[in-house]
């Protein structure tokens, strides 16, 4: 068993998470926080928030299926216990982002139709590649796909979303801070567990690297479609700031003020951050990053 898990326990998860940063929250945010009226009253901005939240729900549904599916193929009890807590984390993420869709005005009876309408097809393909490995009970590939590629992407996406919402939407920013805290544990498990397993099973490298390349290809296509689709809403948000309808704010991510750049530049910043992180993380655990381009 990997030594890093010897300090991990479900008791510590309870003290850190439900009794820690989630204490006194409702669906991940302070009970009195609400979505801003300036966004809810603007159809373009509201639809853009629904579209981006649908991708979060879809991504978290994939993470829930993957983490729960990996429990039975985990080779040791400590990993099973960790994945059990991760399964609950992912289930919570599905719930809080679904609740956000309701807060944005989606009716519960329209939930699945809304997801079908706005789901980015490239994100669905990204999930398929991962879940195929999980279905085959391939623990090594499943953990790399789930805890390094998917969670690594989610970590950067959540940080970027948090930067853009901290001043304009404290409710959503608070929700994201809890998910970022969860992601720290998930990427930590991925790196530490696989770092040890890849040294033990080096023959698995080629297959795992191929999966990373395929997932990265679908991820970049997901980003491209998402940012292209949000261009009009970003322009509207800038127009509101310039007209004084919403306060002028800065949203600094990776040293770039996102409120002052084009959607193409935002896409470039996110894609280069995520791919840079993949390269660094994979190199640390002995895998070579495969460019999808």
């Amino acid at each position: 068993m990997a030594d890093f898990l010897s300090n991990y326990s479900i008791q510590r998860w309870l003290e850190s998470c439900p009794q820690g940063y989630l204490e006194d929250t409702v669906y991940g945010h302070r009970p009195d926080d609400h979505e801003p009226e300036s966004m809810l009253d603007n159809d373009l901005l509201r639809e853009s928030e629904i579209r981006s939240t649908v991708q979060l729900v879809a991504g978290e549904r994939c993470a829930l299926a993957a983490s729960s599916g990996l429990i039975n193929s985990a080779p040791d009890q400590a990993s099973k216990a960790f994945l059990a807590t991760q399964t609950l984390d992912e289930g919570r993420h599905v719930e809080i982002f679904t609740q956000r869709l309701y807060d944005l005005g989606v009716k519960p009876q329209d939930l699945e139709a809304t997801i079908t309408t706005y789901l980015n097809p490239h994100l669905a393909k990204f999930a398929e590649v991962l879940l195929e490995k999980v279905d085959k009970k391939d623990f090594v590939a499943g953990v790399v796909g789930q805890n390094i590629v998917l969670e690594g992407m989610a970590f950067s996406v959540f940080e970027m979303l948090q930067a853009t919402h901290t001043e304009t939407n404290p409710k959503f920013a608070h929700t994201l801070s809890g998910t970022i805290a969860d992601e720290r544990r998930h990427v930590g498990f991925g790196e530490n567990r696989i770092g040890e397993l890849i040294r033990r099973y080096p023959e698995r490298k080629a297959d795992v690297e191929r999966m990373q390349r395929d997932m990265s290809k679908h991820m970049l296509a997901t980003f491209h479609v998402a940012f292209s689709g949000s261009a009009a809403a970003n322009e509207e948000a800038k127009r509101q700031m310039e007209s004084g309808a919403r306060p002028k704010t800065k949203a600094v991510y990776q040293g770039v003020d996102l409120s002052a750049v084009s959607t193409e530049e935002m896409e470039k910043v996110l894609a280069s951050t995520v791919l840079g992180e993949f390269k660094t993380r994979l190199a640390r655990i002995g895998l070579e990053y495969q460019s999808p381009l």
């Binding site: 890093f4 850190s16 805290a181 720290r184 990427v187 930590g188 790196e191 530490n192």
Partner: peptide, 26 residues
Amino acid sequence: VCKVVIRSRVELRAGDRVYCMPCMSR
């Protein structure tokens, strides 16, 4: 791994070993 800053009661030096509790990394 998780970008948290780890703080010790004493000055750190090359060769020291530290534990990151938020992501469980040694």
